[in-house]
Design a protein around this nucleic acid. Sequence first.
DNA 1: ATCCAAATTCAAAACGTTTTGAATTCAGGC
DNA 2: GCCTGAATTCAAAACGTTTTGAATTTGGAT
Lengths: 350, 350
Amino acid sequence: MATLKDIGAELGLSVATVSRALNGFPEVNSQTREKVRQTAERLGYRPNRVAQRLVTGRSGMVGMIVKLNPDMSSDQTFFEVVAGLSAALAARDTDLVLAVDQGTDPVAAYARMLERDILDGFILNAPVPDDPRVAFLQSRNIPFVMHGTTGEAADYPFFAIDNHAVSRDAVNLLAALGHRRIALLNGEQRYAFARDRAEGFRQAMPVPVPDHFMAGHPPSELAGYAQALTWLSGQQGPRPTAILCSATPQAAGVYRAAKDLSIRVPHDLSVVAHDDGFPQMPATGFAPPLTVTQAPFRDACEPLASALLGCIEERPARDLQATLRADLVLRNSTGPVPQDHKTPWPNSQS
Amino acid sequence: MATLKDIGAELGLSVATVSRALNGFPEVNSQTREKVRQTAERLGYRPNRVAQRLVTGRSGMVGMIVKLNPDMSSDQTFFEVVAGLSAALAARDTDLVLAVDQGTDPVAAYARMLERDILDGFILNAPVPDDPRVAFLQSRNIPFVMHGTTGEAADYPFFAIDNHAVSRDAVNLLAALGHRRIALLNGEQRYAFARDRAEGFRQAMPVPVPDHFMAGHPPSELAGYAQALTWLSGQQGPRPTAILCSATPQAAGVYRAAKDLSIRVPHDLSVVAHDDGFPQMPATGFAPPLTVTQAPFRDACEPLASALLGCIEERPARDLQATLRADLVLRNSTGPVPQDHKTPWPNSQS
DNA sequence: ATCCAAATTCAAAACGTTTTGAATTCAGGC
DNA sequence: GCCTGAATTCAAAACGTTTTGAATTTGGAT
């Protein structure tokens, strides 16, 4: 293992000069710099990151705590998320490492990793409203970036989708097509994104929607199928003429329920879903092709990496916040409201 | 952030004494030790792990490189593996961190993590014969433990199942029941375990088995279903009277193919599978309940953690090697060979 | 040769911890 | 009090790197 000292000894230079040469300090003579570079390469010098971190406070490694989830369906996106982030960070000479959290305390795993004092910061995902991780990390001045946001007043770096607009854009489309009986098949209600989408939905709807036509479920085909069967069978009143899904697997379940009940998409039922661009269930693989609000996770990786490193470099949080408007992509799963289904649901104050 | 220096300043002790007191050196007076401990607790002292590693060379973190796998079925076991190992290591004050590898070069991700020089060692899994990771890590004196083994002459720490015995025990059982037409539905052939099971199978078989009744596939129900359909439909000659599966999802596929072809388990076809004890497809959930060679992964976690830490402490590799014999658990998927199917496959020299 | 300013390099300290071996303190015996 | 051995603590060095500010070198003008 070659050290700066070895390089210096061979060239008759001080450790300080070798360090400055390798780190691009401009006052180092260019010939000296080249000799140092070549010797370092020949000796196979690799910086001791631990020593660097002791001096600079930075190791070049950031962490992500992965919450174990008994519902395995969400794990199908896990590797896409991690691969995208790893690549974006690697492009910035930063390594992403994961630790697994099995407990019930949201912050315990962070506390544990902070004991090591090795990681430069964290990437947080799946925020819940008033996410306790935020206060915990802020109180310790630990850099982090959030994928998503916990609310309007977020005072930390984040990269988020405008989930109000996700619902609003879809509702506006369907309302323009004459739909009034629009059901919301949302994500799990404990997440902040689901809360935002429900809010956007309610605000955009031109008429009130009975509570039982707004439900929150995991992003699985089975959940979508079961909920759509209930709604489309008429058990709970006039069936919806459109369903707004939180994720493409839910939409697949809706398609299957519609088929089982001989309800045609889009003639009898319009379907819109949110598409994060994960390849497991592409919107283009639906028959008919699915209309979506589209925000590929792939596009979030670079901004997340950038924001986290900005936070580590102590740039102000407000410069590291971005909210993206999802694209509305029209395909063939949406059409005009059926002629005999134009009336809204009866007014319900429940 | 309190340091040793702060504690020493408050108690009028040297940094060396504070360090020795906190680390249990016996020559420190017990009253001194208690005063140091209380002050450390009051000041919220936490050791700087980076500084420790600079001196001791150890950080208390070990790594596992996760190879991205386009076939998602194996990911269903991923969290069981990681959770078990994390818990076993945590019990020894060691953190497991993961990094994701997307490339084709088996050692590149290790090289990259070694650039950081932060991790104390690695856990390796899914060994292939002559696994290049072994030579790479050994040439750099990097501690590691392998789950499984690459061969008889392994000169590194490992915890493995005796995969020869897995096949041999199953074959001996089926042969004792009169079966001669036994097919092997193995794991993917690139893995060392699959090679060992194939060897054990051939050596245990009392008669030769045509090559096309030995196949290697991923551990999925679909793969098991497709292969069993081919074999049981008679397309390739007399159908097997028993199938030995590499994993329980394959056995589920075999059950389904048998049902589709009106072949009764175990009356017409006996099925045995290897069961790693992952909860996704428990052998006890089969109808009829599945006979298995059983080696729960859960039982490997502690020995793997122990072996890795032993390696880090520079204990000799041969003291850190263990090979476990899987249990043979008889249930209702195996029975005597059908009376009209006692003849072996015709001798085939292909 | 001397002087001056710019260019370049260096010694030292810092980062926080561990450990070696020397220094100091303590306790008991004479 | 002095001596001795054991108990206890300490100063210094180490680990490898970065950075400050001083020291040294270089080059050009007079």
